[in-house]
Design a protein around this nucleic acid. Structure first.
Lengths: 334, 334
DNA sequence: TTGTACGCGTTATCAC
DNA sequence: GTGATAACGCGTACAA
């Protein structure tokens, strides 16, 4: 069932059917209705591949999101999608596998789908070069993606992110100011970019306060509740820090449970600071002190920037937002 | 930059380029390498629209998932995707908006992308008719989707779900057996299908034990932590049930926090049962008793069934799995 | 082993 | 207001 069939069945030409399907005004009312009836009757649905192939401008914006399961990024998608719809564009959402090369995927995505612009949420772009996107003439926004600082502002992309190092620094300093000296950190692993930046912030805070670094205090939770739980249980069998800083809220929950299960009290015995500002931090008991990433702002900024560039303002910029500490009841002064 | 350009630049015909791109064996080694170099040099990426348009069988399996943010469904996607890859197919993931007509979307998805099969995760298919998918000759699996019982096994689709009514019935009975008589329920709203089924199970359990139904005991949390929290706070200002059954774990967390914030103790004062079996139920303090949906099994079954049908076994079936209660520490005997 | 030519389903251009 | 027809970029049968 294609456009030709419908044309034949309706007794009109293919162009008329095309006009009806695309809501062009220059079709007689009766003709339009008749064709619509036939379309309805035979369940005709235009082949999108053929359309994209033929169309010059698709009015498609791509969203490339790392992984299928990331509540943090998901929430930003909904905000962005509203803006895209409002502007009369269509959003194409695509996920990338964890191992996938994100630069390659972005390039593919743009060319394959004839996109007018892309927003990438999360992912690794470490191998980005000055000329990586040189031949691409559509705006690219990298949101919540950690980039080598040297690249900022230099290539044909914009960057919206928080200052991970600084945010983590503030969080750890908060603990230090409360008198904590033996502070563990739950990172993802040695490689993950955001986790690494936060780890650097942790190190800097310790250093500035002349607190010796203890490598036993570094735990790897892979952003998983379960792994964070296990690692914390293990840690507590050997030593008892006065505070644990987890670089994600999900890991903070794992840490919290491990503390409770070890017969200790959150806050009283061991203070906890998380990272992200997910709802659960606020609804856990006790509420978890966490570094809140300005998700809404990042999402809005990304979408606005994209359309500004689409509408002529060709400037690529790079913005690092601040992330503020939201105090809960998981930390005490000692 | 298209296949013709590459052919010209490589000094070969388009078919040779096509063969190289698609890894066909019948190309001389040097020719292949030469063409690959040109492709690399000019960053050529084949236009997927043109490919799909031309291809007869795409070896594409579609996954249609309701909403962008649903941890429960996301986890199933990863399991299904592995099977699809293993079978040498490609997975196309598409999200549907909350208000979208899911039947329409499924039909669109299949025709637009020339799919070999679809798995729908979540969504509303209430308007499904016996002949809705009559003209579709590819397998359709509806997973975690509540369907009017009368439709089971009758049309051209398979259904994998849990028995929501029964599972909820068991959960509420568990509370009743522990001596609870004043049991509140936190539903999504009056319309959402799964929530409705679970609500029915709640009613049946009360009825069978001759516990009078109190409409004050029905709260609407819209599957949101925040909403569930607010509604519970409101409830507790008027009355104090001995137990609350939330039809999702996220709402159970909201309920839990509200209880704590009202100066009451979870379990001791008010027992809680959740639904879904999300990680957080296990990592909350106290652990939340919850009805665990067999996500892995549902996902595996869906994928296996799809490929069985693809490989000739054309039977459509409908399977309702059991969901078991996982005991935590959020309920006491009274 | 390689090249030519046609058709996939649609939209855009032009003629009527 | 409507219809014929040439692209869009690719895969493939068939010819060489």
């Amino acid at each position: 069932m294609n456009i030709k069939d419908i044309a034949r069945l309706s007794g009109v030409g293919v162009s008329t059917v095309s006009r009806v399907v695309n809501n062009h005004p220059d079709v007689k009312k009766e003709t339009r209705e008749h064709v619509l009836n036939i379309i309805k009757e035979y369940n005709y649905i235009p082949n999108s591949s053929a359309r994209v192939l033929k169309q010059i401008s698709t009015k498609n914006i791509g969203i490339l999101i790392k992984g299928i399961f990331n509540p943090f990024l998901s929430e930003m998608v909904s905000i962005i999608s509203k803006k895209i719809q409002f502007e009369g564009y269509t959003m194409l959402l695509q996920h990338t596998e964890v191992e996938e090369d994100d630069i390659e995927s972005t390039l593919r995505f743009i060319k394959e789908r004839k996109l007018q612009g892309v927003i990438c949420l999360g992912g690794k772009f470490n191998d980005i070069q000055e000329d990586t996107f040189k031949h691409i003439d559509v705006p690219i926004i990298l949101t919540s993606i950690n980039l080598p600082v040297a690249m900022n502002n230099k290539q044909h992309v914009s960057i919206i992110d928080i200052n991970n190092e600084e945010a983590a620094y503030k969080a750890v300093n908060y603990l230090i100011e409360k008198g904590h000296k033996d502070i563990s950190i739950m990172i993802c692993d040695e490689k993950e970019a955001a986790s690494l930046e936060r780890y650097k912030g942790y190190c800097r805070a310790l250093e500035e306060s002349n607190i010796p670094f203890d490598k036993e205090n570094v735990l790897k939770g892979h952003y998983l509740m379960e792994k964070a739980y296990e690692e914390t249980i293990k840690l507590l069998q050997n030593k008892k820090p006065t505070a644990i800083f987890a670089v994600s809220d999900s890991m903070a929950i794992g840490v919290a449970k491990a503390i409770t299960d070890s017969g200790l009290q959150i806050g009283q015995d061991i203070s906890i600071v998380g990272f992200d500002g997910m709802d659960i931090a606020q609804y856990y008991t006790p509420t978890i002190t966490t570094v809140k990433q300005p998700r809404e702002e990042m999402a809005k900024l990304s979408a606005d920037l994209l359309f500004e560039q689409l509408n002529g303002n060709k400037q690529s910029i790079s913005i690092l937002l601040d992330a503020d500490l939201i105090e809960g009841n998981s930390c005490i002064e000692i």
